[in-house]
Structures are given as C-alpha cells and as structure tokens.
C-alpha cells in the first residue's frame, strides 16, 4: 500500500464532523464516512488522479469555484459541501453528456441495478434518457472473442479502470485507450479481438468495470 501522511486533520463534509489523514483526497474521506460523491474514474491506488470524469465536483467554503473531490486534499477546518448548486450543475452536465452516448437499454443489460451510471443519475436527479443533449450512439461492434467475457465498447464510459488494472496494476498491457475525441475508445493493438491478444483472461478488467461494457459470459441474462 501507498504510504500517506499520518497527521490527522478535522473537517466537515455536509456539516458532519470528520477526522481524516492529512493529504487524503476529499472523495475518499467522504466515501469512507458514508457520504456519496458521484465518481467513475477515481482509483484509490493511483497516485495521480486522472480527474477526467468530472463527476465528483464539490464546493469548499472560501473557494470561488467548485473543485474535483478526487484531486483536492483535505485541510484542517475545511468545510466541504457536496450538495452545492454550482457543483451539482457541473456534475449533472458531465453525467448527461455520458448518458447522451450511452445505450440506455437497461432492461437487457447485465449490469442493470448494479450499474454505476444508474446510481449516479439517481443521485444527481437526472433521467437516464436525457433530453438536454441529442442522443449520439457510437454503434461499434461488440467483441465476444474472449471465452469468459463480452466487451461492448458502446456502453463504455471511458473511466479507464480496466486500462489501469491491465497496464499499471498487473503489467499485462493488452488493452489501452485509442483514437481521439468522440472516437476515443478502449481497444487493443490494431483493434484485434481481445481473444487474439496478450490478454490472459484474468478478468480483472471485468471486475472493475462500473457499467455493462465488460461483463461475464456465463451470466444467465443474455441480450
């Protein structure tokens, strides 16, 4: 495990008095104390947070603008508000943009009811079928080449958890991000089917996927 500084600080999150290790990020302190902050890309063991999902915005007393909870360390006497109007507006926009290119056929999805996107939408009070943005799906082919799991890139939210596990944690490096902009996706070298790569079927990527993009094959509910 990574050594973090041991000095304790006290702060409040949503009015709740909390003691935490100095230098710890707001997100982890809040989650540990039962206060949910929406997040997708946050990985505790990762030293440098990617802060790319833009969902964990919170307001800190004395700061002009909302901050991302995954990058902001806790300080003595800090007052964090996870329910700030401006912060939630930003988080909502990020979630709605994600949902605008995410197929919301939840009834047929294996991750139904355990999907992080559903949880986030519920928490932020937004509908899964977003009206604010035009629906724009990617229509990419589904990869069923692995004997153990299915990869549907259309459902991917680009959180990077599978890539981190495969590359940084396990040092396999079978999958990674490719392309740019709207075409950005998790893929393999030359976009080969996962079954034909250096992937050793450890399925660690399936375990960390917060949505239905990577799912086990032996599940009874199949589309």
């Amino acid at each position: 495990m990574i050594q973090r500084e041991m000095k304790e600080v006290s702060l409040t999150i949503d009015g709740k008095k909390i003691k935490a290790k100095e230098g710890e990020k707001i997100l982890w302190v809040a989650l540990e104390n039962g206060i949910y902050i929406p997040n997708l890309c946050a990985i505790y063991e990762k030293m440098q947070p990617s802060a790319s999902c833009r969902l964990c915005f919170v307001e800190v007393e004395g700061e002009d603008e909302p901050v991302t909870a995954c990058t902001e360390p806790v300080r003595e006497c800090m007052a964090v508000n996870t329910r700030g109007k401006i912060a939630l507006r930003l988080a909502r926009t990020s979630a709605e943009l994600l949902l605008a290119s995410h197929p919301v056929n939840c009834g047929h999805c294996l991750k139904n009811r355990s999907c992080e996107l559903q949880k986030i939408a519920k928490h932020l009070g937004i509908k899964l079928k977003t009206k604010r943005f035009r629906k724009l799906e990617r229509n990419l082919p589904i990869d069923e080449s692995s004997p153990l799991f299915i990869y549907d890139p259309n459902k991917c939210v680009l959180c990077g958890k599978c890539v981190w596990v495969c590359q940084e944690k396990l040092g396999i490096g079978a999958i990674g991000f490719t392309r740019r902009g709207f075409k950005r996706m998790v893929s393999t070298f030359q976009d080969k089917p996962i079954g034909e790569t250096t992937c050793g079927q450890c399925v660690e990527c399936v375990k960390v996927c917060p949505v239905g993009s990577l799912v086990f094959k032996n599940d009874k509910r199949v589309e």
Partner: peptide
Amino acid sequence: MLEVARFLNIPDIDVYSVATFY
C-alpha cells in the same frame, strides 16, 4: 510499431494509442 514497442519496452497498445491519437 511492434518493433518500437519492444525497443522502448512498453506495451504494443501504448504505441498504437499514440499513433491513433495524432
């Protein structure tokens, strides 16, 4: 690209990632 990956001792996908980004 495979040769470059081996030369830099990085996964093949990292080379492909950069090549498709730009």
